[in-house]
Design a protein around this nucleic acid. Structure first.
Length: 425
RNA sequence: GGAGAGGUGGCUGAGUGGUCGAAAGCGCCGGUUUGCUAAAUCGGUGACCGGGAAACUGGUCCGCAGGUUCGAAUCCUGUCCUCUCCGCCA
């Protein structure tokens, strides 16, 4: 969320930003609520002050009569205080609900537009698009021929959108994980396997809505837990409520986790095969940074994503995400879209976001500079290293050969133990 | 899952109804002393929200949420977490 004071001082800017992002939030109503809230706060504090004053006097009362008289006075004050406090709480809750709906500010260079059609292509990969002298297959057909994925079994066990990886696809998943983690270790990231569930207040701190008709999240009945949609949730939640030393920043983590998404309302749209599934494995990068570090850190995360896909010899383009497509927390977001021959178009495979202090403020993650008074909110960033299901699509489809085999890129061979996937026997 | 113990400031740790935002020690910052370092010594040293140009000042915070009371770190309830023992288990 944004700083309440900042909103009051920059009402027009915030309204314009909401419009650019397609966020229908009543900013004026928030401003009005916030102003009455402040006035009420002063009133409550004054009542508290008087209540405290009276309470202190009771201990020093000279005799029983005076004591009783003051107690009565205290009782009356308490009633008034409680009433005022209740009004304040109601105002604060309503203002807070609105505040949490206001999206982050947007980077001045982010393209302005209501949806992904306004995304701006920045550059393309050194790997050029493949030229096939045969009719390329899509990953579903390839997986079928090579016996790599069992969609039917997935559907019968857990429903549409679930799948079993099989044979070399399993080795590929492990190889991709290992490749990503090794690369990130070389970059100074601390590797973590994270919980696949998280408390709902962590979810909403990161910016997800755990329950409700629009939710993308599976929640666990009779508990405060949900299945995570990304390790961004657990990694970001690690330091909730904590104050870190400035000199310990930036902190870099890579998380290995499963991701679960209901994909409510997304059926039929590019839903074939592994593209839009309810569960996948992902290696995620997460950074806790000082404000002055976050711009460069976003470039760094994007650079790592590019290098990972360069190593996989997969063609892609990098886009600067338009304001309307940023979601709530991101200040700026770069996506890598890999070429997917089966669809004949680019499909999102990774995403790197600078969320500035938006998540940190919700999760209350601060930093302290040695020798300076007070604390400030740090910046959080996240980026996909490898989302296995989508990386598999790009890998299979781009590296397919005329003879029906898949050539494995050099970087995965040490982990896979072979240079080619072929039909068995 | 069962039985206990406990969660207090950056850390250790006192505090069982008022003068407690909280002893003491450590750490940290500053002064004095001092060839240098160390030691000694004196003083300062929590966070958040608000008011004020500032000095300063009001409120809130002793895991979290409620309750009792004029008044709660302290009493009550719930909850989360940690530790120990037992059971179960990959």
């Amino acid at each position: 969320m944004l700083d309440r004071k900042f909103i009051l001082e920059n009402i027009e800017l915030v309204k314009q930003n909401c419009a650019n992002r397609g966020a229908a939030v009543d900013v004026d109503r928030f401003v009005e609520l916030e102003q009455t809230r402040k006035a009420k706060l002063i009133e409550v504090e004054e009542l508290n002050r008087r209540t405290n004053e009276v309470s202190k006097l009771i201990g020093k009362a000279k005799d029983q009569a005076e004591r009783e008289e003051r107690k009565e006075q205290g009782r009356l004050l308490r009633q008034q205080t409680q009433a005022a406090q209740a009004e304040l709480d109601a105002l604060a809750a309503e203002a807070d609900d609105l505040l949490r709906l206001i999206p982050n500010l947007s980077h001045p260079e982010a393209p302005i537009g209501v949806d992904d059609k306004s995304n701006l292509e920045l550059f393309r990969s050194p790997t050029s698009l493949p030229e096939f002298d045969f009719q390329p297959l899509d990953h579903v057909e390839l997986a079928e021929r090579l016996d790599l994925v069992d969609f039917e079994a997935g559907a019968s066990v857990a429903g549409h959108g679930f799948y079993f990886l099989k044979n070399d696809a399993v080795l590929l998943e492990l190889a991709l994980q290992r490749y990503a983690v090794e690369t990130l270790l070389g970059e100074g990231f601390t590797p973590l396997t994270t919980p696949d569930l998280a408390r709902n207040d962590v979810l909403s701190g990161i910016g997800f809505i755990p329950r409700g008709p629009e939710t993308q999240i599976y929640s666990v009945e009779n508990s405060d837990l949900s299945l995570i949609a990304t390790a961004e949730i657990t990694l970001g939640g690690m330091f909730a409520g904590q104050t870190l030393e400035a000199e310990s920043l930036p902190k870099l983590f890579c998380g290995v986790s499963h991701c679960f998404r209901t994909e409510a309302g997304a059926h039929g749209r590019a839903a074939r095969g592994l593209f839009r599934v309810h569960q996948f494995t992902k290696i995620e990068m997460f950074a806790f940074a000082l404000p002055e570090q976050s711009d460069a850190m976003l470039d760094r995360l994007r650079g790592i994503e590019c290098r990972l896909f360069d190593g996989l010899e997969i063609p892609y383009r990098v886009v600067d995400t338009a304001t309307g497509d940023l979601g709530g927390p991101a200040f700026r977001k770069f996506d890598l879209e890999a070429w997917m021959p089966g669809r004949g178009e680019f499909g999102e495979v990774t995403s790197a976001s600078n969320c500035t202090d938006y998540q940190a403020r919700r999760l209350n993650i601060r930093y302290r500079i040695k020798g300076e008074k007070g604390t400030k909110f740090l910046h959080t960033l996240n980026g996909t290293a490898i989302a296995v299901s989508r990386a598999l699509i790009a890998l299979l489809e781009n590296h397919q050969q005329a003879d029906g085999t898949i050539v494995i890129p050099e970087v995965l061979r040490p982990w896979l133990g072979k240079d080619r996937i072929a039909v068995k026997g």
